[in-house]
Nucleic acid binder design. Structure first.
Lengths: 208, 208
DNA sequence: TGCATTTATGAACAGCGTTCAATATATTTG
DNA sequence: CAAATATATTGAACGCTGTTCATAAATGCA
């Protein structure tokens, strides 16, 4: 009987309606101003409907998080896989990370800053799997760099991957929270990318 | 006439009452749960009183920010000034930064993450002055390191200071937002400090 | 058609930041 | 000292928020 399936489709349809509306409001008005009532009224349903598809607001945000994270992983690691040189590949990933972070501050906040979603996240190991996959890809890239002689062989993979990640994350989040205004520099973005270049030049040894 | 002064003292007294209560609630219950009404009831005043001393909640948080920032600056740069070797001094500052960030996550969030305070901050240049002072001290330290041969002479002071700052900031904020749980490592804190050591060992050249 | 099940509603609850007319307190003046 | 003025404080009210739940509408099945 196709009724159950149609029902399921309808259910998913409403869920998608909610998610799309939520994403739209979230992107245009930010986290603080994304309210259940706004989402509901945007899709012309009552507020209660949202709680038939999501446990609470956190879980809704988590669903948004998952989608954003997936897209990002794709952009960061898959899109650069045709770059043969591992260091250039790593640099490209770093630059993409910066670019993505400053172009999509709302998404970025959702993915890497908000703690309010972490309670929900603690249960869903899908989140951690995605994250581990990303770190795994990063480590692979670093390993290739070590193999090619760009990094010292004695450094721990976990540690260098944390350094790379937290370096780009730090730059992005300082920029997005406007803390870089402390620097009397006009072109903040250029400043960020140049600094990242310097980072790579310091951290790697020229091929010897 | 001393009446005006006494009045002023009383005013400041109430303002301090508010700030202390706000800080207490802020530290124990976090930003989200620090409400005007809670602060007011803690000091046994009506909610309205707060708006006689602060324009809005942002300005109250900004006042907390200023105090926290001052304390932190002291801890970070003044307390290590007796370390003669500039690189050791810089390392000590970095470690203090990490320690402070993970020991005082609420303060840290207030100082470096929250954007909701930035609207208020945009006007108050006191904030930017404090920040610029801190960056200035950091740059001085780096300059000393360059002078002592620990860093390459050709790198821009602004860029290397951004790298250092964003490196420690990135590590702290990933830890505080529990993103480091992606790593299957038990002792996260040790991991952070070791990574920071690695960072310094990569970024500096051994004295030659 | 009638019954059972699913789906959706929207009023209600407790809380939020903020404002403001009304009130209580304190000071100055007659 | 009493009246008038100035200041300090109140707390109800406004329009929001996330969330729940009895009620109502719509649908599927016999």
């Amino acid at each position: 009987m196709g009724i159950a399936e149609r029902k399921e489709r309808e259910r998913e349809g409403v869920k998608d309606l909610i998610l799309n509306a939520a994403r739209e409001i979230f992107l245009s008005e930010g986290y603080e101003n994304t309210s259940i009532r706004k989402i509901a009224s945007k899709i012309e349903y009552s507020p209660g409907i949202i709680y038939l598809h999501f446990k609470d607001k956190n879980e809704l945000l988590l669903a948004l998080h998952d989608k954003a994270f997936e897209c990002k992983m794709k952009a960061l690691f898959i899109d650069v896989q045709d770059i043969a040189d591992p260091l250039e590949r790593l640099k490209a990933t770093g630059r993409s990370y910066l670019q993505y972070g400053i172009d999509n501050p709302q998404d970025y906040e959702l993915m890497f800053i908000l703690t309010c979603t972490m309670e929900a996240l603690a249960i869903k190991e899908e989140f951690w799997n995605d994250g581990a996959t990303a770190i795994g890809l990063l480590k692979e890239n670093i390993k290739a760099c070590i193999g090619a002689g760009y990094f010292r062989k004695d450094i721990d993979l976990n540690e260098i991957s944390l350094l790379l990640w937290s370096q780009v994350h730090g730059i992005v989040s300082l920029y997005n929270t406007e803390r870089l205004n402390i620097y009397a520099i006009e072109d903040k973005k250029e400043f960020m990318f140049q600094s990242l270049d310097v980072f790579f030049s310091l951290v790697t040894r020229g091929l010897s």
